[in-house]
Design a protein around this nucleic acid. Structure first.
Length: 571
RNA sequence: GCGGAAUUAGCUCAGCUGGAUAGAGCGUCGGUCUACGAAACCGAAGGUCGCAGGUUCGACUCCUGCAUUCCGCGCCA
């Protein structure tokens, strides 16, 4: 039912139906023994000479039919029912059937866009089902770095894509606020508060060295008050009270991370604290369930989980000989909690350096015998980011010391460019972030290239509306058959592909598809703009072109929105 | 050593889950503003898709080896 919104917006299913009935016809005639079992494959050819859509069915079934692909293709074409979609069809190459679509069918999408507006591209695949996207999930032990930025850009964009495809999305940030690293944080702040430096002999092992630790220490000793997402803490100033330092430091860094994320236009529905799993007893409960299920054993004073019976290469310690749990135990408890909250679908976006945790967490969940499917949860892993400037790698940040922060990037190149660059490449590729390119205000820079297309469209429409009033675009919908130039038709075809791009990007969990599409859409728009004057054409043509411009602006805005990048009216 | 990811034009990267002559952008070279925004457009040059086999009508895509790079491999998180 909901699928039909999608179907109406693309011509593929319509063409598939025509070909299917042609094949049925051939079966009735006895030319074919039966219908092909695989679904028909219909593609957009790269070469315009190969038509608008093409189908390979003749090559696929030729052998079984005992005919040459080209002969079979000829028969398929002859058996095609009459319709208003296909203007012409050809046989090409080894047996492709190429279809040329009636140009009115290409431009009718303009009406669809101008009535759907910001919902054009939405496709109801999820049908309101719940999905959780967990991303960023940085430890509150320091500022967010560029890797977190990549996770934030990808995760948030995934959320937007899933929303656009009909899912009820919940965005969650998991705070590891209970482990050894938090202890190190508190010790580092304490050391700073006592006037020590990382160079000193008695500086804590594995202490954090960035200058932000000094800031936290100063704030603590001067008894400042910090407002983090869900709590307010005033520092006692007592530098012997390690727990007080810990709570205060965590609050400080959470606040800083929250501010960075806000500057990055990323927000969350839920901040889930690891410590709450200890407080509620969920961790102990998880452990005893695993023990009951018989998937654990004791050895050398420690409790182990047989992760190797769930695909891990060796078994893993759950409870250390000194009594504490290893980090993946609360992770399992956390994911059980997600399952119990009713998320039949969960997507975790993380850095690829955490790859090894996947097997462990899934193994723990299987060991619970809680009816959780084997491949749950899903993971999207992104590879490392390196930052280049003036041809050299940038490694240090003033504030964090050892890594470039997300805030550094936003300060250098702005939120839009940062988000675009971090989301525009496949998560599986290592990413080189070129500061000089991101700063360029020219066609070197894809962000500005796309935004410029949007601003240009807005500018023409402002001029048109001042000269002609606001209804010229609507009137243009009655004259769409005036759009006959190849540049106009190419643009309209590209605009019409948008819902398919959104659906595919959401299904494959690959937001960079949208970035690539936008570059194509912007390019087609610029080409059309340069080839044909809009405001000086004959009235009917002018109005039709204005409608096309309005539709282009809308689609580019919708696409940029999926990436969390702004769509400026002027630049 | 084991596991994961990557390898495509000088550079940065796509390649729609197996389709036609492998594509963009940048860079290089050459054109286009007395008209709606030149932050743009048009054209040219540029390739052994890391290497070797295999699967089939058809392979950058799938399978098996090999090479190189990155990331993991703790009773750290």
């Amino acid at each position: 039912m909901a699928r039909r919104t999608f179907d109406r917006m693309t011509m593929k299913p319509e063409l598939a139906a025509l070909i299917s009935s042609a094949l049925e016809q051939l079966v009735l005639q006895g030319t074919l023994a039966d219908m092909p079992d695989a679904p028909l494959q219909i593609d957009h050819p790269k070469d315009p000479a190969h038509g608008d859509l093409s189908c390979n069915v003749a090559m696929v079934i030729a052998k079984r039919a005992g005919l040459s692909p080209r002969d079979l293709a000829q028969q398929v074409i002859a058996a095609l029912p009459s319709n208003n979609l296909v203007a012409r069809s050809d046989i090409a190459g080894p047996g492709f059937i190429n279809f040329f679509i009636n140009s009115e069918r290409h431009t009718e999408v303009i009406s669809t866009i101008l009535s759907a507006l910001s919902t054009f591209g939405h496709v109801d695949i999820g049908q309101g089902r719940k999905v959780q996207v967990e991303f960023v999930s940085a430890n509150p032990t320091g500022p967010l770095h560029v890797g977190h930025g990549r996770g934030a850009a990808i995760g948030d964009s995934l959320g937007r894509l899933l929303e656009a495809t009909g899912w009820a999305v919940q965005r969650e940030f998991y705070y590891n606020d209970a482990g050894q690293q938090i202890q190190n944080l508190a010790l580092s702040v304490q050391a700073r508060a006592m006037g020590k430096c990382p160079e000193d002999a008695d500086w804590p092992d594995d202490g954090y060295q960035g200058s932000y630790i000094e800031d936290v220490a100063k704030a603590f000793t001067s008894q400042e008050t910090v407002q983090a997402a869900d709590r307010e803490i005033t520092a006692s100033g007592d530098i012997t009270d390690l727990n007080a330092i810990k709570d205060f430091a965590v609050a400080c860094l959470r606040r800083e991370q929250d501010q960075d994320l806000r500057a990055f236009a990323v927000s969350f529905d839920e901040y889930f604290l690891e410590s709450s799993l200890y407080d509620s007893g969920a961790v102990d409960e998880t452990v005893s369930k695993l023990v009951q299920s018989g998937h654990t054993f004791e050895e050398e004073n420690a409790l182990w989980l047989r992760t190797s019976s769930f695909g891990d290469d060796k078994d893993r310690v759950m409870r250390k000989s000194e009594g504490g749990y290893t980090y993946f135990v609360p992770d399992v408890a956390y994911h059980l909690n997600k399952w119990q909250r009713g998320f039949k679908r969960v997507i975790n976006e993380q850095g690829a350096d955490h790859h090894s945790t996947i097997t462990r967490v899934r193994a723990g969940l299987q060991g619970l015998d809680a009816g959780i499917p084997e491949g749950w949860p899903e993971y999207v892993l992104h590879q490392m980011v390196t930052v280049m400037r003036d041809g050299a790698e940038v490694k240090l940040s003033k504030r964090a010391g050892s890594y470039v922060t997300l805030k550094d990037l936003i300060d250098w190149v702005g939120c839009d460019a940062t988000r675009y660059f971090l989301v525009a490449r496949s998560p599986t590729s290592q990413l080189t972030f070129d500061i000089d390119l991101a700063l360029a205000r020219s066609n070197e820079n894809p962000v500005y290239y796309i935004q410029y297309a949007h601003a240009r469209a807005a500018s023409i429409r402002r001029k048109a509306s001042a000269a002609l009033g606001d209804d010229a675009e609507t009137a243009g919908l009655d004259h769409l058959k005036c759009l006959i130039e190849p540049e106009a038709l190419t643009l309209a075809i590209t605009l019409g592909r948008f819902p398919e791009v959104v659906a595919t990007a959401a299904e494959r969990l690959e937001p960079h598809d949208v970035a690539n599409y936008l570059r194509q859409a912007a390019s087609d728009f610029h080409t059309f703009y340069n080839a044909h004057h809009i405001l000086e054409a004959q009235p009917a043509v002018m109005k039709a072109r204005l409608a096309l411009v309005a539709a282009s602006q809308q689609v580019i805005a919708n696409g940029l929105n999926l990436l969390g990048v702004s769509a400026p009216e002027s630049m």
